[in-house]
Design a protein around this nucleic acid. Sequence first.
RNA 1: GCGAUUGUGGUGAAGUGGUUAACACAUCUGGCUGUGAACCAGACACGCGUCAGUUCGAUUCUGAUCAAUCGCCCCA
Length: 430
Amino acid sequence: MAYQLQRGTYDAWGSDAMNLKKLEETLSAIASTFGYVPIKIPTYEQTELFTRSVGESSDIVSKEMFSFMDKGGRNITLRPEMTAGVMRAIVTNKLYVNDLPLKYFYCGNVFRYERPQAGRYREFSQFGIECVGVNSYYSDAETIVFGYNALLMLGFPKIILKINTIGDQQSRDNYKVALKEYFKPYLESMCDDCKRRYETNVLRILDCKSPEDQKIVANAPKIQDYLTDEAKEYFQKVLDILNEFQIEYEIDDNLVRGLDYYSEVVFEYHFISENGVNLGALGGGGHYDNLLKEVGGPSLSSVGLAFGLERVNALLKELDPCCYEKPSLDVFMVHMDEKSKEHAFYLASDLRSAGFIVDMTFENKKMGAQFNIATRKNASFAIIVGEQEIANHTYGVKNLKTQVQENVSYEDLVDYLDNHLEEEDHHHEE
RNA sequence: GCGAUUGUGGUGAAGUGGUUAACACAUCUGGCUGUGAACCAGACACGCGUCAGUUCGAUUCUGAUCAAUCGCCCCA
């Protein structure tokens, strides 16, 4: 009886795992250049943190959380996103007493109980940044630029940047009043969810799936008509900076994002491959004013974004399968008998100490079979160890790509490999 | 949450209400006991997603369930 892979989860190994890891490293390095430092937070928090911050009425909280009671009777939820946890950590550790803004980057797995499809998992990885404690359109623009450039640096030829503003508090209060007024006469005929949303968060009625309600929604007032002058100007300033960087964007009125804590500027990055593969948003984020206060800290404006690593990885793989890293070895040891196996074992150890990636088989296989393994493991060199080699302290070193084999003495081995591996790297770069 | 399609080995896949579930690739073994090819001879599904039903008998029929893929929605 085999255990099943749980729905919406995946295993990754070898090449895929390598590239996922490399993605994290690259993004971390880029974030560092903006002055971001790492933060590590728990995988689970008390449920209320998410219901309060992400919002009762959001899709994530209302139907996508992995929540459970622990043995101590605590109501626990596996993080559906990272921002709330970061805010909690800032409050818990009173990090806001430090110089503002706080700039943290994180990478970790998050959980959402959704129906899986291409590029959508129930457990997936997010890399993100949060810049907390600054209310400046420069900060918003910097965050957007970071995300945009990071994707280009990773190898995307171009990125579709969707951007919108949902206004400041004042704008949204005005808008909500207008919406309530608009929906009031229709409310009787609308679905039960919407009746509830009318009270909890009118904005969510705009997302209603019921076809009848959508007809009503179609003519509802738009946020754009209720923006304060300040909100409009703020948004325009951000757009000006993007223009300055010659970053293309499209303003998308429907982009509101599914988390309740956003205000002002929100954005998403998309990419559609040549083959038409569209995994949805590669990442997204926005500005948020009330979140830190909401979880018990001071009132500080912030901005953040997150990428979905699996989606980024999948598209990069499709873009350029050649550049996609594969596991490889510098050297594979080939031996002939018990004696040479032992010799190869210790020689491998010496070479590893010198920094080479070395592997071998401990099974008694014919040389041909060992060469096959070497090729499969993507080894650059095979070092042949046999009776003669042991006697002469000289090994047959075969370049598996050029087929050239030379005899190299034990003393020269490290230099020989160094030189020739370097050469290969140059070839790769060219 | 809604709709559609699919489910046979490590992989790609054919097939049938009833003795050994084609074929190909990969892998392993031997022919070749110091060099990856080719060739030849072998091996490789305790079994056709899972559970139940129909049947003398089911991988093949029916139902349920699970899962995957695609579209919608949402997003990462």
